[in-house]
């Protein structure tokens, strides 16, 4: 093996990280501005749980952090911040995505549904009810992501989207236990509530 220099440095020469914002025509129309801290922000408008929300954000802000830190919708969780756990799953324009791997500015004009938009403690979504009934959680941290994922996942089955375990691509797919487990695999639950989550989803899928 080569003996590279082991006096590791964090970084070599750096250029300034505070680049000047040059704004494209489409965005310029919405007037970006400087915040008090000197960072440049962009206005972003999207619909969250049925309400139009306008934010001024550092372009680096992920959809996840926009929800959690700016809109204080903390039901959506940060587990890994790298698309490797699924805790941040939200539904955008009807499709589930990892909100940690999406910039908020990518979602201008989008419709975002978070766990708070599915139901509240006094008015739970059927899947939230089913999770309680089947004890489909333990610590609860992955739970909002699991529920958002499951809601959208059932929609994917309804739309005939196949999965890795779908046997025959020419036939209709249904929410079998195997299909549900495969399709929910992007939502990790370290407490290991998988069997109960599958039972909760089956309850709702069967109506």
């Amino acid at each position: 093996m080569s003996d590279w220099n082991l006096s590791v440095t964090r970084r070599g020469l750096l250029t300034s990280s505070a680049a000047v914002l040059s704004i494209a025509p489409a965005i310029r129309a919405r007037a970006a501005s400087q915040s008090s801290a000197g960072a440049t922000t962009l206005p972003v408008t999207f619909e969250v749980n049925g309400q139009e929300r306008m934010l001024r954000l550092d372009p680096r802000t992920t959809l996840l952090d926009a929800l959690r830190e700016h809109l204080k919708l903390t039901g959506t969780k940060k587990g890994c911040d790298h698309g490797q756990c699924g805790a941040c799953t939200v539904i955008v324009n009807g499709e589930r995505i990892n909100s940690c791997l999406s910039l908020a500015v990518q979602h201008a004009g989008d419709q975002v549904t978070t766990i708070e938009g599915l139901g509240t403690p006094d008015d739970l979504h059927p899947l939230q009810e089913a999770f309680i009934e089947h004890d489909g959680y333990q610590c609860g941290y992955c739970t909002p992501g699991q529920i958002c994922s499951a809601v959208a996942m059932l929609g994917e089955i309804e739309r005939g989207i196949p999965s890795h375990v779908t046997g025959d691509l020419s036939k209709a797919v249904s929410a079998t236990n195997m299909e549900v487990r495969e399709r929910m695999s992007g939502n990790i639950c370290r407490c290991g509530a998988y069997s109960n989550i599958a039972a909760a989803i089956a309850d709702v899928a069967e109506g």
Binding site: G83, G86, T89, E95, R96, I97, N98, L101, S102, S149, A152, M153, E156, P162, S163, H164, T166, R183, M184, S185, G186, N187
Partner: peptide, 11 residues
Amino acid sequence: QAGASGQLRNK
């Protein structure tokens, strides 16, 4: 279908 997760495949 064998790649990533449902969420990632949507994006």
